[in-house]
């Protein structure tokens, strides 16, 4: 934060977010180029997104330059990889598995993965929490609200 070393400035929060904005703007612009541009009267599908991504790119560039020049943009703290991977995996399992596994197993696996993310719950706690969630979601969403998902999915039959 206090250091003015150029390298530190390059990987500061502000500089990196500037780069991210530029990258996203570039991506959108690249994709928008394949769309019809049209005219001001009949704007095509690409007109508005192209204008927006141009603007976003400019602002991203400004944020980047300012961060590098001023040399203070806040350091990026380390990523919580374990948490990120397990939490996202938990959601993905639910999404990909819901139809095949059914609500019960999908909830159970999701909850198990999620409890592992904090690294503070023992296996017994994990199992109990998963079981509670399975029963609760079954009662509320299948019995109570009649959500169109089977409790046990097609992969098991």
């Amino acid at each position: 934060m206090n250091g003015k070393s150029p390298l530190k400035a390059l990987v500061s929060q502000d500089a990196l977010s500037g780069l991210m904005f530029m990258a996203v703007a570039g991506g959108f612009a690249l994709l928008a180029k394949e769309l019809s541009l049209g005219t001001a009267l009949r704007m095509g599908a690409g007109y508005f997104p192209l204008a927006l991504s141009g603007l976003l790119g400019l602002i991203g560039f400004a944020i980047f330059v300012r961060a590098v020049l001023s040399g203070c943009g806040g350091a990026v703290t380390p990523f919580a990889w374990r948490g990120l991977i397990l939490v996202v995996a938990s959601v993905l399992v639910f999404g990909f598995g819901l139809n095949g596994l059914g609500l019960g197993p999908a909830v159970a696996i999701s909850a198990l993965l999620a409890t592992m993310a904090s690294g503070q719950v023992g296996w017994r706690g994990s199992l109990v929490l998963s079981a509670v969630l399975v029963v609760f979601t079954w009662l509320v969403f299948i019995l109570g609200l009649g959500l169109p998902i089977p409790l046990i999915g097609t992969w098991f039959s």
Binding site: A114, T115, S118, Q120, G125, L129, L133, F141, L147
Partner: peptide
């Protein structure tokens, strides 16, 4: 929180799913 957040994840996933199934 270590017990609360797995529930949040499960409910959010169900909630997001249920809007359009």
């Amino acid at each position: 929180y270590r017990y609360l957040f797995p529930a949040i994840i499960v409910f959010s996933a169900i909630g997001v799913f249920s809007v359009n199934n």
